[in-house]
Lab assay of single mutants.
Amino acid sequence: MGFKLLSKLLVYLTASIMAIASPLAFSVDSSGEYPTVSEIPVGEVRLYQIADGVWSHIATQSFDGAVYPSNGLIVRDGDELLLIDTAWGAKNTAALLAEIEKQIGLPVTRAVSTHFHDDRVGGVDVLRAAGVATYASPSTRRLAEVEGNEIPTHSLEGLSSSGDAVRFGPVELFYPGAAHSTDNLIVYVPSASVLYGGCAIYELSRTSAGNVADADLAEWPTSIERIQQHYPEAQFVIPGHGLPGGLDLLKHTTNVVKAHTNRSVVE
């Protein structure tokens, strides 16, 4: 069995187990497998329904001669939608809004960016022009300005110390501490036991640490421990890039980060 097929099978099995364990909360999309990078042309966006009122959005972007996937989250909030992270750029984010209108038909009224990198804030200006209120932590807003990236308009308070959590509509926002970046936030959907790890969490097929220019490698494993301790009931975990899975993604990420750190020390 090929690795790609095995990865998709694991996603399907995880979703099936969740649907059985929580039949009222989960209505997993039966329309197909989780979209992969090879299936999404740059400039297009796919939506994948995880649970009743919960979707991931998947886009792709060219970077350094390669094409990478990027995940975000959409959560229903009454007759409105909360968006977590842009679709990595203005063109993708405009396509995301169009796809949401086509498939869901509810307005996106608020959006949260989970850290300051372009795959999370690139497209904020498109959201703002569409009347979406954009939010991020003060740290993310400051770092985005320093980096020359787009800056969300509103500040999220109460997320300055490791372990801080605040309720934001249908989700809980959690600051686990520094990891992929010093400002990275985690998003949890309690009604569906869905954990969105953003770039602080890796997919299972990833074996290298990737972009760690703004990471705190020493603190990252401790931050992941905080996530595990705060959300032990999480059933569906979405990484910032690639295929979702279960809580095993947290341990896998820790292993990859520690291996990278150990290699760096040896070198």
Rank of each mutant, 00 (worst) to 15 (best):
M1G: 05
E157A: 10
S16I: 07
D29V: 09
E172Y: 05
H241C: 01
A259C: 04
D125E: 12
S160V: 11
P190D: 11
R142C: 06
T86S: 02
G105N: 09
A95F: 15
E267Q: 11
D125H: 09
Y196A: 01
A144N: 04
I104F: 06
G89D: 03
L5F: 13
M1P: 02
Q228I: 09
S22Q: 11
P190S: 11
E150Q: 05
T86K: 02
P69V: 15
V237G: 02
S208A: 10
V11N: 09
K258Q: 14
A215W: 03
F116E: 04
G148Q: 09
G131S: 09
G72M: 02
V256F: 05
G177C: 04
R76G: 07
A165Y: 13
S161C: 06
E145K: 14
P244Y: 11
L204Y: 09
P138E: 08
P170R: 07
I227T: 08
P170A: 12
E233N: 12
S62V: 05
S27Y: 10
G2Y: 14
F174G: 01
R263K: 13
I201S: 05
S160Q: 13
I74S: 03
G32N: 09
L185S: 04
S208M: 12
T86D: 00
V37Q: 15
S137K: 08
V212M: 07
H230Q: 11
V54H: 00
S223F: 04
N184P: 00
E233S: 11
L106S: 10
I58Q: 06
G242H: 05
R128S: 10
H57M: 00
V67H: 15
E172K: 04
V257N: 08
S62R: 09
V171D: 01
L247G: 11
M18R: 06
A133T: 13
G53P: 05
I58C: 06
Y231V: 03
Y188Q: 00
S27K: 10
P176T: 03
H117K: 03
T207F: 09
A87Q: 00
A259G: 13
T254A: 09
A133F: 11
Y135E: 01
R141H: 07
N92W: 00
P35D: 15
D85W: 00
D64H: 07
E233W: 10
L143N: 08
V187W: 01
D216Y: 06
L156W: 02
V256H: 04
T86P: 01
V124F: 04
R167C: 06
A218K: 09
T153P: 05
L10W: 06
S27F: 08
G53W: 06
V75I: 08
E172I: 06
N255M: 08
R141C: 06
V187P: 02
R76C: 05
V266D: 15
S162Y: 13
V67F: 15
P152C: 00
K4R: 05
S191I: 09
G242L: 04
V112W: 04
N149V: 10
Y202C: 05
F168I: 09
T140M: 03
V42Y: 07
I201M: 07
G123N: 05
S205A: 10
A136D: 03
S161F: 12
A200M: 07
E150T: 02
D52R: 10
P239E: 01
M1H: 02
E101T: 10
G163P: 04
T114N: 01
V37P: 15
A178C: 05
N262E: 14
S22W: 15
S31I: 07
E219H: 11
G242Q: 02
V256M: 06
S155N: 12
A200G: 04
C199M: 00
V166D: 06
F26G: 15
K8H: 06
S181I: 00
F174T: 02
A66C: 05
H180R: 04
G210C: 05
S155L: 13
S7G: 07
E267R: 11
D79A: 10
P41L: 11
G89Q: 00
L83G: 02
G2E: 14
R142Q: 13
A213Y: 08
S161P: 06
L143P: 04
E157K: 10
A215L: 05
L97H: 03
L73A: 05
V194R: 01
A259F: 08
L217G: 04
G148A: 09
F236K: 08
A129V: 10
G163M: 08
E150S: 01
G123Q: 04
V132S: 05
A200H: 02
H230C: 05
P69W: 15
S62L: 05
T153E: 13
P23G: 09
Q103K: 14
H115E: 00
V11G: 06
G105W: 05
K102D: 13
L106G: 06
F26M: 15
K4A: 04
K251E: 11
G245E: 01
T207N: 15
D77S: 08
Y175W: 06
L195A: 01
L73Y: 00
A130I: 09
V124T: 08
V37N: 15
V11P: 13
G123W: 04
I186A: 10
H57V: 01
E33H: 07
K91F: 07
L83F: 04
N184Q: 03
V121D: 03
S7T: 07
T254E: 14
R141L: 10
E33N: 10
V171C: 02
D248H: 12
V166E: 08
P239Q: 02
T254H: 14
A25W: 14
I104G: 00
T36F: 08
A200W: 01
V75L: 05
A19H: 06
E147F: 15
E44L: 08
R142M: 12
S31G: 10
K4T: 11
A215K: 05
S16A: 14
Q49L: 09
Y12F: 09
D216L: 06
Y175T: 00
P35M: 15
P138H: 07
H241L: 02
T153N: 09
H57L: 02
E219Q: 11
I50A: 05
R46L: 11
L82Q: 00
Y175A: 02
W55V: 02
G78I: 07
G72V: 01
L82M: 09
E157G: 13
V132M: 04
A209Q: 08
S162H: 11
G163T: 08
L249E: 02
S27N: 07
S161N: 14
P138R: 08
G177W: 03
D64R: 07
C199E: 00
K102I: 12
V146S: 13
